[in-house]
Simulated scan of single mutants.
Amino acid sequence: MRLNAKALAALLWLAGCSGGGDLPRPPIADTAVRSRDAPAPLPAEAGDARGPAGTSGMGASRYDTVGYASWYGDEFAGSPTASGTPFAPDAITAAHRTLPLGSHAEVTALGSGRTILVLINDRGPTHAEREIDLSRGAAALLGLGGEPTAPVRVRAVTATSSDAAALAAGRPAGLRLSAPPSLLAALRAQLKPAASTATPPLPRRRAPPGAAGYLVQVAAFSSESRARALATTLDGYVEPAGRLHRVRLGPFPDAAVAQRARDDAARRGYGDATIIIQPDQPRVERP
């Protein structure tokens, strides 16, 4: 028996209405819905009175501390860094005493919570009470606003390949989340009081009569402003010599202390720094 088109359509409709013809559907995971509705959880360290314990990608051995940051700029432009690359003031780099050259660190301003990623490419600071020396570009990105020093958190991290490439090319890395107020409060509680950032002019003074003063001559500039900027950074002084302005450190009590100062200047890119002995000579005002 042949069915016409209307009869065939009716049979198919009746079959579709039967209870056993539905195909099973996979359950919809409610985790995706929750992830859109719920706020992102704060890190475990937020509000912890013991201070930072967040994830850096480096495990329990990560470097994580608080201290004071300073910065340096045009006075070192083009000078070789400890890593061998010329210093670029506008790049997002930093000098640190112990973090490996070529590694990366997050720096958080404890006043604002702003956090940036920097490339460690130099050695410093020379001031014992400071934790890290930022390039001018890094200081501006962190929002230091021209202040000579600022309290910060320094945390070694493992950078992503894209962030590492950006920093190596002199560009900022991707944006970081600002630290929450509860974490900033815990970090500030660990901070030691800063020494006064003001450097009052020192009067002219002389070495003790008959004593040999060990000095380190770091560099000589035709530009007085560059010489004074470097002297301020190294805690040295400027001595005029005709049309040149010599940057010197000291006097030091013995040759061993002078040698350490000379080696530190060399690590900052001034490998021609030399030790000289100059008994009972006037010291000019510190800039």
Rank of each mutant, 00 (worst) to 15 (best):
A49G: 04
G73W: 06
G137A: 07
D133P: 09
S70V: 07
S56M: 03
G111V: 11
G67N: 11
T93N: 09
E131W: 00
S135A: 03
R97Q: 11
R153K: 08
G143L: 09
F76C: 12
A139M: 08
G111H: 03
D163K: 09
A105F: 08
E147I: 09
A46S: 14
G111N: 13
R114K: 15
A150C: 11
S70K: 00
T65A: 15
P148H: 05
V66H: 10
Y68Q: 06
F76S: 05
D64V: 05
E129T: 08
V154A: 12
P80L: 13
L119C: 13
S162T: 15
G54W: 15
P86F: 14
L119T: 01
E45I: 05
N121M: 07
A82H: 12
T160K: 08
T126S: 15
A139W: 06
D122W: 10
V118I: 10
R123T: 05
G84Y: 04
V154R: 05
T81H: 04
P125W: 10
S135M: 08
G124Q: 00
A105K: 05
R123V: 02
P125M: 11
V154S: 06
S70Q: 09
P52F: 15
G143I: 00
R136P: 08
V157Y: 07
G102E: 01
F76N: 08
T81N: 05
A164E: 09
Y68F: 12
P86R: 08
Y68T: 09
A164Y: 07
H127F: 14
S83Y: 00
I132N: 06
A139V: 04
G111C: 09
I116Y: 10
L141A: 15
P89R: 12
T160R: 11
W71E: 04
L99E: 00
D64T: 05
A69N: 10
S56E: 11
D163E: 13
Y68K: 11
P52K: 01
A94Q: 00
P125S: 10
R62K: 14
R50E: 14
G137M: 10
S79H: 14
T126Y: 13
P100K: 11
G124N: 02
G51D: 05
P52D: 14
S135K: 01
D163V: 07
T85E: 14
G143V: 02
G67D: 07
G145K: 06
P86K: 09
V107D: 09
D48E: 13
